[in-house]
Each structure stands twice: as C-alpha cells, then as structure tokens.
Design a protein around this nucleic acid. Sequence first.
DNA 1: TTAAAAAATAGGTAAAATCCTGATTCTCAA
DNA 2: TTGAGAATCAGGATTTTACCTATTTTTTAA
Lengths: 217, 217
Amino acid sequence: MTNAHKHTIAIVDDHLLFASSLEKLIHSFPEFEVLFKARNGVELQRELKAGDHVPDIILLDLNMPVMNGQETLSWLTEIHPGIKVLVLSMEDDERTILKMIREGAKGYFLKDIHPNDLKEALLEVMDKGYYYSAKVTSTMVHALQPGSKSQPLNLKENERTFLQLACSEMTYKEIADVMNLSPKTIDGYRQELFNKLNIKNRVGLVIYALKNNIIEI
Amino acid sequence: MTNAHKHTIAIVDDHLLFASSLEKLIHSFPEFEVLFKARNGVELQRELKAGDHVPDIILLDLNMPVMNGQETLSWLTEIHPGIKVLVLSMEDDERTILKMIREGAKGYFLKDIHPNDLKEALLEVMDKGYYYSAKVTSTMVHALQPGSKSQPLNLKENERTFLQLACSEMTYKEIADVMNLSPKTIDGYRQELFNKLNIKNRVGLVIYALKNNIIEI
DNA sequence: TTAAAAAATAGGTAAAATCCTGATTCTCAA
DNA sequence: TTGAGAATCAGGATTTTACCTATTTTTTAA
C-alpha cells in the first residue's frame, strides 16, 4: 500500500507515553499512518482548523484535562461528522459506554485491547463504519433489556440534584434552602430514592451516586 | 551498543495494548531491549522462576487483576532485590506514591510521562539506581513536612476499621456489634475522627475514606 | 511497682435523619 | 373546563446522629 493511500489517524490523548507508543504501534500497520497527535480537545480543534489535514479516524481518550473526551466528541459529531471517532478509555462501566455511543462514537474500547484487535478494529471501522467489541455489544444489549436492574438514568432532575447535594456535608434543611424547596419536599425525594434504590440511609445514597457516576470524587 | 550489552527490561501490565506499544517504544531505544512481558504478578513469577532470564529493570503496572502491583512489588523486593522496579501508574495521589516507595520501588511515574523522559528515567535507573520525577520528589518532600495536613496514615487500627464500616449502611450500633465494642466507644471514635478530619457528619467520613483510598468503590 | 497516658465506657441532651399518613397545589390532556 | 396524576408540602412519631462531660479500665513507661 503506497503512502498516498494509507488511511489517516489522529490520536487525542494527554498521556504522552501512551500516545507515542500507540503511534509506533500504528506505524507497524501498513494500512495506516498517524497524521498528528493532540493532547486534548482544544489542541485537536487547532489542528483541524489549520485545515490542510483531516484524518479518517480519531482515536480519542476519554480522560483529559482542559477539554475532555466527551466534550470533544460532541464537537466532532457536530462539526466533523465525517470523521470516525473511536473512544479509548479505562472505564468499562455501562453508563460511560452508552453515553459515548449516544454521542456518536463509532467504536469504544478499553485500553487493554490486544494490538491485533486494534488493527482489526481500525480496518473494520474503515470498511463498515463502526466497530464494537463483544464486551461493548453485550453492554448495549444488556442496557436495552427491559427491566435491567441498573437504570440510573430514570432519575428526575430534582432527584438527581438532591442526590448530588446529599453527597456533601449539608443537612437536609440546608439542601432545601439551596434548592428553594420545603424541607418536607426534600424529605419526599429522600424517601422516594430510598425506596427506588433499595437503601436504608444517607450513606447508601453516597455509595449509589459514586457507583453510578452521579458525583465525582 | 551490541545486543549482548543492552540493558534488559520486563513489562508487567495487563493492558495488552499499552504493554505492546511500550515494547515498541523501548525497541527504539538502542540501549535497551524487552526481555519479556507478563500480564500480572503470577505470570511474572513464572517467567522469573524459569530462571534463564532475569531483567535489569521491571516496569510494573499498579492496577492489575489476579496479583496486583503492590503484591508483586513486595514479592520482588524480597526475592529479587537486585531487580530495579519502576512503577507505572495512573494514580498520582500521595498515599499510593509513598506506599510504593516504602515498598522499595526504584521509581514511580504516571503513564502520561513523555517518551524522552522515560528513556532518561531508564538510563538514570541503570546509572544511579533510582529515578524520581520532580512531581514524585515534591510529593515526598511534602509528606515529610511536619504538619502537612493530609496524613491519612496516622489512623489507629480500630479507627480505620470503624471508618471502613461507617461507609456502609450499618448503624453505629451495628458497627459496635461487629467490632465487639460498646456503642459508646464507637461514638468516641466517631467524634475523634470528626475532630481530626475537620468534618461534620457521616457523609464527611465517607468522602474522606474515598479520597484517601481507605475504601474502594 | 506505680504514675501517667491511652483506650474504652457511660449518661444525658439536642439535632438530624428516618418513616409514616394525609393534604394541597400544579400540570396537562381529554 | 375538569379530573387524574404528579409534585410539593405538613404533622407527628421514632430512631439515629452528633455533642457534651466524666468515669473506669487497660496499656505504657519510668
């Protein structure tokens, strides 16, 4: 395959060591070449706006400072819908995976993917337009199953806000003040959540919020 | 540098993509060669016990299933004190860093290290016997400062146990039962921790425990 | 051995959390 | 317009937390 016909790739990852290593790996694939690397979404935007080089595929890390993976993906989906974005991440939780797919990622894999599988994934993305590993596929199926037990998505907006505030040292009365609601309403949210999530006290709320990425620590 | 005089390296990481990429990167350093890769501590032990090849340096990932980085490091320090272990990790919290250094790691760096710095680190480890980045060094200095505010280490054993149990849905009375102590003693632990950590309620305990890796979620 | 320090325990009280049941108010569609 | 359902709010009771001060027991060091 001549250089002119190689598929082009951009790597967006703030982990320099990983990005450079990945670049070398891809260099060993005759079908692909790395067009450029960026450390975050802002750098990527700069590169793309320069205009003279738009990659076929972007390998996008999820955890970046400045402009993280999700924001970058939203921007790409809107401005450069033609670029196929593959999300690279350490997180394998359902919530994160589904969020990225909904945002338009053409593929999602964990960083512990086997090098051979990466090559296969790149080829398949160029061929079919998407690549999802068995793990991610099963996650999607599971999420679509009716009655799958973990549905942290059906929280109402106020419940979600309350849940986040409940993970602080505020009393319920203080939370009520912040949310401009009666303490009794807050008490209602609390009870509703206890029932819905099958927990017994406020510590349970915190644990749940953490497990489901409702709050960050 | 002839092949016979290259410094030898082993990579222990369950992230195949990362390990393979890293191998390729190191391959581009004329002074070093990768002797073998292992996916976890157990595999590493197998390789080392085979006996015919002992590396100069081991690049050790911290987060592995089966036998994790810390266990592996303890074992290495005892059985193969001659091997220089460099810990590769995603965690940059003081607690983790210090723990590894105390366990005998000859270096500690985050996976976002620059490739050039990696090479420099490898050379320096062979030369001086250790390599610590500015970040890690400053962490050590900070930890040794008297009165540095974050000292999650000075928790007494019972306080620590209580703290872990307080991060569950148990009442303090139930915790007292489990720990075979009077509820009043538990109340004492609680109050002591509130003062020590400058927090106001049980949620504060949970947050603190999480931030300081006292519990896992 | 003994005094001092640390750990464990107690009593009492106020505040917050938890758990009911029921009453308004609001929203939205028929 | 109106009625059903959701959201909000209230009263009131019990349990758990949180906060004092003080005593007993255990451990440690001189």
